[in-house]
Deep mutational scan, measured.
Amino acid sequence: VFVDDHLLEKVLELNAKGEKRLIKTWSRRSTIVPEMVGHTIAVYNGKQHVPVYITENMVGHKLGEFAP
């Protein structure tokens, strides 16, 4: 499973602090992992960042699938 390192670091850091804030990313190719559930990730679609709230059903899919 591929997840960009910088994105995973941000998610794990927020989980350690117990925070839930918006994470901006250009990494549409990253796979959604269970650690991301409950976070809102702003995924770049080529024009703007689209906020995507991550749920359990999204695990295993790519971030780009949810930012048309």
Rank of each mutant, 00 (worst) to 15 (best):
I41P: 00
V50L: 12
H49N: 05
I23V: 09
E35S: 10
H6A: 15
F66T: 04
A16I: 09
V52G: 01
V11G: 00
L12K: 13
N15V: 04
Q48I: 11
N45E: 07
T40S: 09
V50R: 09
M36Q: 01
G46N: 07
G38M: 08
E9I: 12
A42Y: 04
V1K: 09
G60I: 03
I41N: 00
P34N: 12
R29K: 14
P51G: 07
H39G: 01
M58T: 07
Y53G: 10
R21P: 06
E35R: 04
R21E: 14
M36R: 00
G18T: 04
N57H: 10
V50K: 12
A16L: 12
V1P: 15
V43K: 00
E65S: 11
F66A: 05
K47T: 11
G64K: 09
A67M: 04
P68W: 08
P51Y: 06
K17F: 06
R28G: 04
N15K: 03
G60Q: 09
E56W: 14
Q48E: 13
R28T: 06
E19P: 03
V50C: 13
N57G: 11
L12W: 07
L14F: 06
R29Y: 13
F66H: 07
T40P: 01
Q48K: 12
I23T: 02
I41M: 06
T55S: 13
H61M: 13
T55R: 13
I23K: 02
N57Y: 12
E19T: 08
F66V: 06
W26D: 06
K47Y: 11
L63N: 02
A67K: 03
L8R: 05
G46S: 10
M58G: 02
K10I: 15
S30L: 02
L8W: 13
L8K: 04
H6I: 15
P51Q: 09
H61F: 15
K10N: 10
H39I: 03
L14W: 03
V11Q: 00
K62A: 09
A16Y: 08
R21Q: 12
H61N: 10
K24W: 15
H49V: 03
P51S: 10
R21C: 15
L22C: 13
K47V: 12
Y53I: 12
K62G: 06
V11E: 01
P51L: 11
A67R: 03
Q48Y: 13
N45M: 05
I23N: 01
V11M: 03
I54Q: 00
V11D: 01
E35Y: 07
E13S: 09
N45S: 08
N45K: 07
E35W: 03
T25V: 02
S27K: 04
E19C: 11
V33L: 12
R29E: 09
L7R: 00
V59K: 09
L63Y: 01
V59S: 07
V50I: 14
G60K: 07
I32Q: 00
E56P: 12
